[in-house]
Amino acid sequence: MASNEEILAGLAEIVNEETGLAADAVELDKSFTEDLDIDSISMMTIVVNAEEKFGVRIPDEEVKNLKTVGDAVNFIANAQA
């Protein structure tokens, strides 16, 4: 079970790997599309990598609700609980 800080750090690492964005730019209040300029294909790659890293399942219909990094961290934390 990862803490929210650990999930954020792990997610930032995945985003960096996929997009080249600096990991410290990945903050809780940042929007994936508006602030981080992540397109839908990159988003799906990030989701699948996050599923593997955190051992959770993020259903496709849930992905559109993950607007900010914080949304994703909360979803993963709840899914792990």
Binding site: I41, M44, V48, E51
Partner: peptide
């Protein structure tokens, strides 16, 4: 199938 990357086709 979940692990087949979305960029595979392009």
């Amino acid at each position: 199938p979940r692990r087949v990357l979305p960029m595979t086709v392009p």
